[in-house]
């Protein structure tokens, strides 16, 4: 067995040296979108966050994905401005309805929902989010397998 002493103090120092207490806030983003695009209103959080649920990992609407693929970083208004400029220059249409994202925002419509499309509510996450969903299916499968396993065990024991 090794008698080598692990460099734990050095590792701990590295962690502490690179630690930062918390994520930078992005609460200024809606106002920055309004200012940068000259909108008459402040966009809802749901333009970027499905169902308006905010927090790390929740900016996953088509519009948000378009911004992130153009360098948007959390907490950086300059990266937001750059990404918005890129969307404008590229005439990006995240929901593929023929109207660009910037035009939709100016018009007050959602750049994530195609014009005239049937409105599907925002995605909801979790087990049994709908009848017959994961809970029923998976529990049924697990119970079925447990039953088969139990019978096999009994048969083996005889």
């Amino acid at each position: 067995m090794s008698t080598h002493r692990f460099p734990l103090p050095a590792l701990a120092g590295l962690v502490v040296a690179t630690w930062s207490a918390s994520a930078l806030a992005t609460s200024s983003f809606p106002g920055e979108v309004q200012n940068h695009l000259g909108l008459s209103y402040t966009p809802e959080c749901s333009v970027c966050h499905s169902g308006g649920q905010t927090g790390s990992g929740t900016a996953n609407t088509p519009f948000a994905m378009s911004l992130k693929s153009r360098g948007l970083a959390p907490g950086s208004t300059s990266s937001l401005d750059t990404a918005l400029d890129a969307l404008t220059a590229e005439n990006t249409d995240s929901d593929h309805d023929g109207l660009t994202d910037v035009a939709e925002l100016a018009k007050g419509t959602d750049p994530n929902v195609p014009e005239g499309a049937d409105v599907v509510g925002p995605p909801q996450y979790g087990c049994a989010v709908s009848p017959g969903g994961a809970t029923t299916l998976d529990l049924g499968a697990l119970l079925g397998l447990a039953l088969v396993a139990s019978r096999l065990r009994r048969r083996a024991a005889r």
């Binding site: 995605p123 909801q124 979790g126 989010v129 709908s130």
Partner: peptide
């Protein structure tokens, strides 16, 4: 992914 709904997604 049965952990997301509505089923359209």
């Amino acid at each position: 992914n049965l952990q997301v709904a509505p089923a359209a997604y």
